[in-house]
């Protein structure tokens, strides 16, 4: 090529060769120093802490962590403890209902808000404000509203329905649904906002096309819009799931795990055994199970989301 010819032609006058080669480690040194907190957090707390807990879940630690490995003994104990099994059942019921209701209600509300309505901002503000409140506040309010003596039940009875019973927080069979009501009240707004953002992100011409084709609105939503919003649904699913597994404050505030152990959840089990019961091994084993539950949802999602398009 000509470029090369030109270069070699003047090779005699070429400047002296390169100076010292670069030291890779020292390039952009300030940036690397500034990132030390992040590196420490990622490696020591997130990675190290997780590995540490998983490893110590195979030990006989009680009051203090002790590196005496006992295999799966803690897990055997865990799964033969009635409180843990109930915790898992509760989490399964709460999780499933919460997932389905949040997604459905969230989407329907978002679709309603997306109809170019008046006062959209006011409605949105109302639907989202519970999300700003803590689970403690949420739990305490609903504890009060669901109080059978003064709350909803007594009012409806006062209206003449003498036999009406709705006392979820005092009836072990349905207590977990009392928590579900509060949880949905607090969290649906977030899902609605996500869905609304997803709906707004859809090309307006899709709507024009479906109108020209004469497709009814509900069909457009069900067969065109919802499939197009798959990424939003998946993000919402991951968010809800990781929130469900962390469920703790709400239960503590609303029922304290009661009546009896009817509303116990895994996160509370972990806390009670680690910091109350002085039985660290059980706490580690239980938290490892929680990690496993999250991993089952998050890892496939991450592979789907980031696996395909890894680039620099």
């Amino acid at each position: 090529m000509r470029a090369e010819a030109a270069a070699t032609g003047r090779g005699a006058t070429s400047p002296p060769p390169s100076a010292a080669p670069p030291r890779r480690l020292l390039r952009n040194l300030t940036a690397k120093i500034a990132a030390i907190p992040m590196v420490l957090t990622a490696l020591v707390v997130f990675l190290g802490g997780t590995v540490w807990t998983v490893v110590y879940s195979f030990t006989s630690s009680r009051m203090l962590p002790r590196a005496e490995f006992v295999g799966l003994e803690q897990y055997d104990r865990l799964w033969s403890t009635r409180r843990w099994v109930i915790s898992i059942e509760n989490l399964a019921i709460y999780g499933l209902c919460s997932l389905v209701f949040s997604l459905v209600i969230g989407f329907v509300l978002a679709a309603l808000l997306d109809q170019k309505i008046r006062y959209e901002n006011a409605f949105r503000t109302i639907l989202l404000y519970p999300f700003a409140l803590s689970f403690i506040v949420t739990g305490l309010v609903w504890q009060w509203i669901l109080d059978p003596e003064f709350g909803l039940q007594s009012i409806i009875r006062g209206l003449g329905f003498e036999n009406f019973t709705f006392d979820p927080l005092y009836n072990p069979d349905i207590a977990i649904f009392g928590i579900l009501i509060a949880g949905l009240w607090q969290g649906t707004g977030l899902i609605m906002i996500l869905m609304l953002a997803g709906l707004r992100g859809i090309d307006g011409e899709i709507w024009k096309a479906s109108r020209v084709d004469g497709i009814p609105a509900w069909k457009t939503y069900l067969f065109i819009i919802v499939p197009m919003m798959r990424p939003v649904f998946i993000t919402a699913l991951v968010l809800i799931t990781s929130g469900i597994v962390k469920l703790y404050d709400l239960v503590v505030a609303q029922t304290g795990g009661g009546p009896g152990i009817a509303t116990e959840v895994p996160a509370k089990y972990v806390y009670d055994y680690m910091f109350g019961g002085q039985n660290l091994g059980q706490g580690f084993a239980a938290s490892t199970m929680m990690l496993l539950a999250v991993a089952i949802v998050v890892i496939p999602w991450a592979m789907l989301e980031f696996g395909g398009k890894r680039r620099g």
């Binding site: 400047p15 002296p16 060769p17 390169s18 100076a19 010292a20 080669p21 670069p22």
Partner: peptide
Amino acid sequence: IQGKNVTW
């Protein structure tokens, strides 16, 4: 650049 090695 201007005869000076500026590679790094």
